[in-house]
């Protein structure tokens, strides 16, 4: 309650909170004594996230979902395209210009063991964003707000004195969440926030995240490979394959009526905790192709059971098919299996 009282809520404005327009994020390696190689980690990605919305981002490792999450927070310098946050173009802002905006955009990481500095106390970790954003802040104010944040995530004030190694994985993830929320941001990128946790703890942390989301009216980009968690948490879902969004729709539509063969295959691969429902799954052939040398045309065609010769010719555009549902597949004649 009290962490919210300290920062006035942002003035509600029209339009989406985040708009990403033809974003490209390329990485280069080599160059000296070796051929220059370019990984097109994110290629021509366009989407929006409405205020208070949770957009899920799913895909296999190497699909570019984490890179996209980092790019929208401007952790990286964009190769091309625009990121507009709350009406302001942040694509080309310098580090210094970005600093005030950082208070409004935060991130939660997957690995609660790697993302907390082992030499800092929990109080220092959670208090760091406050000190960076408000250099003149008093010690007692930091302590009070850290205490509030810790209580909000289900820890005690006294935990501020302790070090990360004294906590379990679930508790560490709570510390990471407290650090993300201590500045009462409006936008959060949660990159696989519960993937490293045990099932019984995962549910606690998801529920906590959703409770804070509701209180702060947060907008979230929820990156996950766990489609079941995404189905429970997200309003809309974008599916990425080899750097591009191949399908995006509201969660219900995507689960009940997927229109991209890759989405169908992803759903089909999820193991179901019910032995009477062992089913024939759609097994994808092989692995994700190398992003250094993506196949021509539709990147998914090499693993797609519906591929036709025309799929090799051009990259299919992410086309609107009604009701906010978009898909990048030239085949309109497919009857795909729903997730549920």
């Amino acid at each position: 309650m009290s962490i919210m009282a300290l920062t006035p809520p942002p003035i509600p404005r029209d339009g989406p909170l985040l708009r990403v327009d033809r974003l490209r994020q390329w990485f280069s390696s080599g160059g000296f004594m070796s051929p220059r190689l370019t990984v097109r980690a994110v290629e021509d990605v366009t989407f929006e996230i409405g205020r208070g919305e949770i957009l899920g981002l799913v895909g296999e490792s190497g699909s570019g979902k984490s890179t996209l999450g980092r790019a929208v927070l401007r952790v990286t310098d964009l190769t091309d395209g625009r990121v507009v946050f709350d009406g302001q173009d942040v694509s080309t802002l310098s580090k210094r210009q970005l600093r005030p905006l950082r208070a409004r955009m935060q991130m939660i990481f997957q690995d609660p063991f790697a993302s907390l500095n082992p030499r800092m106390t929990v109080g220092q970790i959670v208090g760091a964003p406050l000190r960076i954003q408000n250099p003149g802040i008093s010690r007692s104010e930091v302590e009070a707000r850290v205490g509030d944040a810790l209580r909000t995530v289900g820890l005690a004030d006294s935990h501020a004195e302790r070090y990360p190694h004294e906590f379990s994985g679930g508790q560490r993830q709570r510390i990471g969440i407290a650090r993300a929320f201590v500045l009462a941001p409006d936008f959060l990128v949660a990159d696989e926030p519960v993937s490293a946790l045990d099932v019984s703890i995962q549910a606690q942390v998801v529920n906590l995240l959703m409770e804070i989301k509701r209180k702060l009216d947060l907008t979230i980009l929820f990156i996950s490979h766990d489609l079941a968690v995404v189905g429970h948490v997200c309003d809309r879902v974008a599916v990425m394959y080899l750097g591009r969004i191949v399908e995006i729709a509201d969660t219900r539509t995507l689960f009940r009526n997927p229109r991209h063969p890759y989405t169908e295959a992803l759903f089909s691969a999820v193991p179901v905790a019910d032995p009477s429902r062992r089913r024939q799954r759609i097994l994808l052939k092989g692995d994700l192709p190398s992003p250094l040398a993506p196949p021509s045309g539709c990147a998914f065609r090499t693993r797609c059971r519906y591929a036709i010769p025309a799929c090799a010719e051009a990259v299919p555009p992410l086309a609107h098919i009604g009701g906010g549902h978009q898909k990048a597949c030239i085949r309109d004649d497919l009857a795909l299996q729903p997730a549920c």
Binding site: V199, S200, I201, Q202, A203, Q204, V206, N207, M210, D226, L227, A228, V229, G231, H232, V233, T251, R252, F255, R256, F267, V270, V272, A273, A339, C340
Partner: peptide, 17 residues
């Protein structure tokens, strides 16, 4: 506690231990 592959209207808290 294992979330199933379903969709619901709005967020239904997951059952945790």
């Amino acid at each position: 506690a294992v979330p199933t592959l379903t969709v619901s209207d709005g967020f239904v808290p997951l059952t945790s231990i």
